[in-house]
Protein backbone atom coordinates (compact mmCIF):
# COMPACT_ATOMS: atom_id res chain seq x y z
CA UNK A 1 0.00 0.00 0.00
CA UNK A 2 1.52 3.29 -1.05
CA UNK A 3 1.63 6.32 1.18
CA UNK A 4 -0.76 8.22 -1.09
CA UNK A 5 -3.44 5.59 -0.72
CA UNK A 6 -2.82 5.42 2.98
CA UNK A 7 -3.30 9.14 3.45
CA UNK A 8 -6.69 9.07 1.81
CA UNK A 9 -8.80 8.67 4.93
CA UNK A 10 -12.16 9.18 3.27
CA UNK A 11 -12.79 5.55 2.46
CA UNK A 12 -16.42 4.77 2.58
CA UNK A 13 -17.86 7.92 1.06
CA UNK A 14 -16.90 7.35 -2.53
CA UNK A 15 -17.84 3.68 -2.50
CA UNK A 16 -21.35 4.10 -1.18
CA UNK A 17 -24.17 3.55 -3.65
CA UNK A 18 -27.72 4.16 -2.65
CA UNK A 19 -29.94 1.14 -3.13
CA UNK A 20 -32.96 1.57 -5.32
CA UNK A 21 -35.55 -0.09 -3.14
CA UNK A 22 -38.52 1.14 -5.15
CA UNK A 23 -41.70 2.10 -3.46
CA UNK A 24 -43.20 -0.24 -0.91
CA UNK A 25 -46.42 -1.97 -2.00
CA UNK A 26 -49.71 -0.57 -0.76
CA UNK A 27 -52.49 -2.70 -2.18
CA UNK A 28 -52.76 -6.46 -1.91
CA UNK A 29 -52.19 -6.89 -5.63
CA UNK A 30 -48.94 -4.95 -5.46
CA UNK A 31 -47.76 -7.09 -2.56
CA UNK A 32 -48.59 -10.21 -4.55
CA UNK A 33 -46.71 -9.04 -7.63
CA UNK A 34 -43.72 -8.16 -5.43
CA UNK A 35 -43.60 -11.68 -4.00
CA UNK A 36 -43.96 -13.21 -7.49
CA UNK A 37 -41.18 -10.97 -8.81
CA UNK A 38 -38.89 -11.91 -5.92
CA UNK A 39 -39.73 -15.58 -6.42
CA UNK A 40 -38.45 -15.64 -9.97
CA UNK A 41 -35.57 -13.21 -9.48
CA UNK A 42 -33.38 -15.90 -7.90
CA UNK A 43 -31.46 -13.64 -5.54
CA UNK A 44 -30.74 -16.61 -3.30
CA UNK A 45 -28.89 -18.24 -6.18
CA UNK A 46 -26.79 -15.10 -6.56
CA UNK A 47 -25.68 -15.68 -2.95
CA UNK A 48 -24.79 -19.26 -3.77
CA UNK A 49 -22.83 -18.03 -6.77
CA UNK A 50 -20.81 -15.62 -4.62
CA UNK A 51 -19.86 -18.43 -2.26
CA UNK A 52 -18.98 -20.75 -5.14
CA UNK A 53 -16.74 -18.08 -6.67
CA UNK A 54 -15.01 -17.50 -3.34
CA UNK A 55 -14.51 -21.23 -2.89
CA UNK A 56 -13.03 -21.71 -6.35
CA UNK A 57 -10.74 -18.73 -5.77
CA UNK A 58 -9.60 -20.19 -2.45
CA UNK A 59 -9.02 -23.66 -3.81
CA UNK A 60 -7.47 -22.97 -7.17
CA UNK A 61 -6.08 -19.45 -7.03
CA UNK A 62 -4.50 -19.62 -3.58
CA UNK A 63 -6.68 -16.89 -2.13
CA UNK A 64 -7.24 -18.77 1.11
CA UNK A 65 -7.85 -16.80 4.25
CA UNK A 66 -7.46 -19.62 6.71
CA UNK A 67 -4.24 -21.20 7.94
CA UNK A 68 -3.81 -24.95 8.25
CA UNK A 69 -2.68 -24.48 11.78
CA UNK A 70 -0.44 -27.34 12.86
CA UNK A 71 1.29 -27.26 9.48
CA UNK A 72 1.26 -23.51 8.90
CA UNK A 73 1.66 -20.85 11.51
CA UNK A 74 1.10 -17.14 11.45
CA UNK A 75 4.18 -15.16 12.44
CA UNK A 76 3.97 -14.06 16.04
CA UNK A 77 4.98 -10.69 17.33
CA UNK A 78 8.49 -10.38 18.78
CA UNK A 79 6.82 -8.90 21.84
CA UNK A 80 5.07 -12.19 22.45
CA UNK A 81 6.22 -13.81 25.68
CA UNK A 82 6.39 -17.53 25.10
CA UNK A 83 8.72 -20.19 26.50
CA UNK A 84 12.14 -18.71 27.21
CA UNK A 85 15.17 -19.19 25.00
CA UNK A 86 18.73 -19.19 26.19
CA UNK A 87 20.96 -17.67 23.57
CA UNK A 88 24.57 -18.38 22.75
CA UNK A 89 27.35 -16.09 21.68
CA UNK A 90 27.65 -16.31 17.93
CA UNK A 91 31.46 -16.07 17.93
CA UNK A 92 32.42 -18.70 20.45
CA UNK A 93 29.28 -20.74 20.83
CA UNK A 94 29.33 -20.40 24.59
CA UNK A 95 26.12 -19.58 26.34
CA UNK A 96 25.70 -15.92 27.06
CA UNK A 97 24.53 -16.34 30.63
CA UNK A 98 27.11 -14.91 33.04
CA UNK A 99 25.38 -16.22 36.13
CA UNK A 100 24.63 -12.80 37.60
CA UNK A 101 21.36 -14.04 39.08
CA UNK A 102 19.32 -10.95 38.22
CA UNK A 103 16.58 -12.98 36.57
CA UNK A 104 16.31 -15.18 39.65
CA UNK A 105 16.04 -12.09 41.85
CA UNK A 106 13.50 -10.21 39.81
CA UNK A 107 11.25 -13.19 39.11
CA UNK A 108 8.02 -12.30 40.87
CA UNK A 109 6.68 -15.81 40.91
CA UNK A 110 9.95 -17.29 42.16
CA UNK A 111 10.08 -19.82 39.38
CA UNK A 112 13.73 -19.40 38.29
CA UNK A 113 16.26 -21.41 40.20
CA UNK A 114 19.93 -21.12 39.36
CA UNK A 115 23.19 -22.21 40.83
CA UNK A 116 26.61 -21.00 39.82
CA UNK A 117 30.17 -21.96 40.62
CA UNK A 118 33.69 -20.99 39.61
CA UNK A 119 35.23 -23.27 37.06
CA UNK A 120 38.93 -24.11 36.90
CA UNK A 121 39.74 -20.82 35.12
CA UNK A 122 37.98 -18.89 37.89
CA UNK A 123 35.16 -17.95 35.53
CA UNK A 124 31.61 -18.14 36.69
CA UNK A 125 29.63 -20.91 35.08
CA UNK A 126 26.01 -21.87 35.44
CA UNK A 127 25.83 -25.27 37.06
CA UNK A 128 22.08 -25.44 37.33
CA UNK A 129 19.30 -23.40 35.81
CA UNK A 130 15.65 -24.32 35.75
CA UNK A 131 12.45 -22.44 35.21
CA UNK A 132 9.35 -23.91 36.78
CA UNK A 133 6.81 -23.32 34.05
CA UNK A 134 4.04 -24.42 36.34
CA UNK A 135 4.63 -21.20 38.25
CA UNK A 136 5.94 -18.89 35.53
CA UNK A 137 3.45 -16.17 34.65
CA UNK A 138 5.43 -15.07 31.55
CA UNK A 139 5.73 -11.50 32.74
CA UNK A 140 8.98 -11.02 30.85
CA UNK A 141 10.91 -9.38 33.69
CA UNK A 142 13.73 -11.92 33.44
CA UNK A 143 14.24 -11.12 29.77
CA UNK A 144 14.03 -7.42 30.43
CA UNK A 145 16.55 -7.44 33.25
CA UNK A 146 19.12 -9.67 31.58
CA UNK A 147 22.25 -7.57 30.89
CA UNK A 148 23.62 -9.98 28.28
CA UNK A 149 20.39 -10.68 26.32
CA UNK A 150 21.02 -14.28 27.35
CA UNK A 151 17.49 -15.13 28.38
CA UNK A 152 14.81 -13.97 25.96
CA UNK A 153 11.31 -15.07 25.19
CA UNK A 154 11.24 -17.39 22.23
CA UNK A 155 8.46 -18.26 19.87
CA UNK A 156 7.48 -21.59 21.38
CA UNK A 157 3.89 -21.01 22.44
CA UNK A 158 2.58 -24.55 22.22
CA UNK A 159 3.02 -25.42 25.85
CA UNK A 160 1.20 -28.72 25.94
CA UNK A 161 3.62 -31.51 26.71
CA UNK A 162 3.47 -34.97 28.16
CA UNK A 163 6.13 -34.18 30.73
CA UNK A 164 6.53 -30.78 32.25
CA UNK A 165 10.22 -31.39 32.81
CA UNK A 166 10.64 -31.32 29.04
CA UNK A 167 11.29 -27.66 28.54
CA UNK A 168 12.37 -26.28 31.83
CA UNK A 169 16.05 -27.25 31.93
CA UNK A 170 18.80 -24.94 30.83
CA UNK A 171 19.90 -27.30 28.07
CA UNK A 172 16.37 -27.50 26.70
CA UNK A 173 16.06 -23.76 26.39
CA UNK A 174 19.60 -23.25 25.13
CA UNK A 175 20.09 -22.93 21.40
CA UNK A 176 21.46 -26.26 20.16
CA UNK A 177 25.11 -25.83 19.21
CA UNK A 178 24.55 -27.26 15.73
CA UNK A 179 21.75 -24.76 15.12
CA UNK A 180 23.79 -21.76 16.16
CA UNK A 181 23.59 -20.19 12.71
CA UNK A 182 19.80 -20.31 12.94
CA UNK A 183 19.68 -18.47 16.25
CA UNK A 184 17.34 -15.51 16.07
CA UNK A 185 18.46 -12.34 17.74
CA UNK A 186 15.84 -10.84 20.00
CA UNK A 187 14.39 -7.76 18.34
CA UNK A 188 13.82 -5.93 21.56
CA UNK A 189 10.81 -4.66 23.37
CA UNK A 190 8.48 -2.66 21.21
CA UNK A 191 9.53 -4.34 17.98
CA UNK A 192 6.84 -4.78 15.37
CA UNK A 193 5.81 -8.19 14.12
CA UNK A 194 7.44 -9.48 10.92
CA UNK A 195 4.19 -9.22 8.94
CA UNK A 196 3.32 -5.78 10.28
CA UNK A 197 3.13 -4.27 6.79
CA UNK A 198 0.47 -6.74 5.71
CA UNK A 199 -1.57 -6.05 8.80
CA UNK A 200 -1.92 -2.35 8.08
CA UNK A 201 -5.41 -1.51 6.92
CA UNK A 202 -7.03 1.75 6.12
CA UNK A 203 -9.22 3.02 8.88
CA UNK A 204 -12.60 3.78 7.36
CA UNK A 205 -13.09 7.27 8.66
CA UNK A 206 -15.73 9.28 6.92
CA UNK A 207 -15.26 12.69 8.50
Amino acid sequence: MSLEQFKNRNVGIQNYTTLDLGKSPETGMEQFTQVVKRTFKGDLFAGLGVIMKAMLKALFKGDMHTVKYPFEKLPISPRYRAIHDMLRLLESGNYRCIGCGLCEKICISNCITMDTRYDEEQRKEVSEYTINFGRCIFCGYCAEVCPELAIVHGGRYENAAEQRAGFSLFEDMLTPIDKLNLQQEYDGFGAVSPNADENIKQTPLAY
Binding site: L44, G47, L48, V50, I51, M52, M55
Partner: peptide, 13 residues
Protein backbone atom coordinates in the same frame (compact mmCIF):
# COMPACT_ATOMS: atom_id res chain seq x y z
CA UNK B 1 -23.83 -33.47 -4.84
CA UNK B 2 -26.51 -33.39 -2.16
CA UNK B 3 -23.94 -33.38 0.62
CA UNK B 4 -22.06 -30.53 -1.03
CA UNK B 5 -25.33 -28.68 -1.55
CA UNK B 6 -25.96 -28.69 2.19
CA UNK B 7 -22.48 -27.38 2.99
CA UNK B 8 -22.78 -24.81 0.19
CA UNK B 9 -26.10 -23.48 1.44
CA UNK B 10 -24.79 -23.33 4.97
CA UNK B 11 -21.75 -21.34 3.85
CA UNK B 12 -23.79 -18.99 1.69
CA UNK B 13 -26.54 -18.18 4.20
Amino acid sequence: FFFFLMLWVRAAW
